[in-house]
């Protein structure tokens, strides 16, 4: 097994379904292309859930390994991305629950806040606005960290990943009503967490 991933130049390699079929037939290199295509998004989703690079990398890699070993169970009802989301979210929820069981806070300030992600947003020119944005992000991160894992997953998939309710329901394996309910409670908690800060901003 080499570590090299073939470039997706051939026709058909742009299509996830084709690559999944090839991988199901045993073509490891087709799966490698899928991994390369989805690894950043899987990592970001894992990071938003667990708020720690090391854990996020572990969750993302484990998600792909599990996807590969259960590839025969993938029937193509959802896209490969949605299916992968489901695995990432479930593994991230497991990680959060393990932390909680281990006596560790489900969200640890020392893990999340100082590790300001090197995102792709430009910093605001105005220092006051930049500080304000940073404070909001910090409060938001803390608020997200206090959400139960299932609510956190629904919120992140909706607001950060931009998934539809139906996609979230498929990704987390519950019905639409449950998704709406989890989203409502998550939003309300965040709104309350940011209430004082929002009042200052007005």
């Amino acid at each position: 097994m080499g570590g090299k991933v073939p470039p997706p130049e051939q026709p058909g390699l742009q299509d996830d379904r084709y690559l999944v079929e090839r991988a199901q037939q045993g073509a490891r290199e087709a799966f490698a292309i899928l991994v390369r295509r989805h690894q950043d998004r899987a990592f970001n989703l894992a990071y938003q859930m667990v708020r720690n690079r090391e854990d996020a990398l572990d969750v993302a890699q484990e998600a792909f390994a599990r996807a590969y070993t259960s590839l025969s169970a993938f029937k193509g009802d959802a896209t490969f991305g949605t299916w992968l989301h489901r695995i990432v979210v479930n593994l991230a929820i497991d990680t959060l629950r393990r932390r909680r069981r281990g006596g560790e806070a489900p969200y640890d300030d020392s893990r999340g806040l100082p590790e300001e992600p090197e995102g792709d947003l430009p910093a605001p020119d105005d220092p006051a606005t930049a500080l304000e944005a940073k404070q909001t992000r910090a409060l938001l991160a803390r608020g997200i960290g206090q959400l139960p894992p299932a609510q956190r997953a629904a919120l992140i998939l909706r607001e950060i990943e931009g998934l539809s309710y139906e996609e979230i329901a498929r990704a987390v394996g519950c019905n639409l009503g449950t998704v709406m309910s989890r989203l409502f409670y998550a939003r309300r908690k965040l709104q309350q967490a940011l209430k004082a800060h929002l009042a200052d901003l007005r």
């Binding site: 990592f43 995102g119 992000r137 607001e159």
Partner: peptide, 10 residues
Amino acid sequence: ALQATPRVSL
């Protein structure tokens, strides 16, 4: 604020 959350890349 949530939508403005920076994406984290490898």
